[in-house]
């Protein structure tokens, strides 16, 4: 019984990847979109690990997943005025 574990792992990760990226583009709340973006970036890094390229995986996490979503959330905070004015105005779009 030869189970291709790598293929199964790849399918699971792809499912995560696609669900996460769909959630990024359809999400109404920007912070959640950034969170899902971080998740897709980490997942894609794990897919790189399946291709036996550890260095790309680590750089992906260090640079991409570590910095880009933080920058995104930073920008979101800087450009959302509603939370400053009256509490509770969670901005839809």
């Amino acid at each position: 019984m030869a189970v291709d574990w790598e293929l199964i792992a790849f399918f699971i990760l792809s499912a995560f990847e696609i669900i996460g990226s769909v959630l990024v583009v359809i999400n109404k709340r920007l912070v959640r979109a950034a969170f899902w973006l971080a998740m897709t970036l980490v997942t894609i890094g794990v897919i790189y690990l399946l291709f036996l390229s550890e260095f790309v995986f680590l750089i992906q996490i260090l640079v991409y997943a570590g910095a880009v979503p933080v920058l995104m959330v930073f920008g979101i905070m800087l450009t959302r005025r509603k939370i400053m004015d009256e509490p509770g105005q969670e901005a839809p779009e």
Binding site: V24, V25, L30, A34, T40, L41, M72, I76, E93
Partner: peptide, 17 residues
């Protein structure tokens, strides 16, 4: 489809990925 600039930026990140 999305109008928000930051979401567009995130989508570009996904394309790059």
């Amino acid at each position: 489809a999305r109008r928000n600039g930051i979401i567009v930026l995130m989508s570009i990140e996904i394309i790059l990925n």
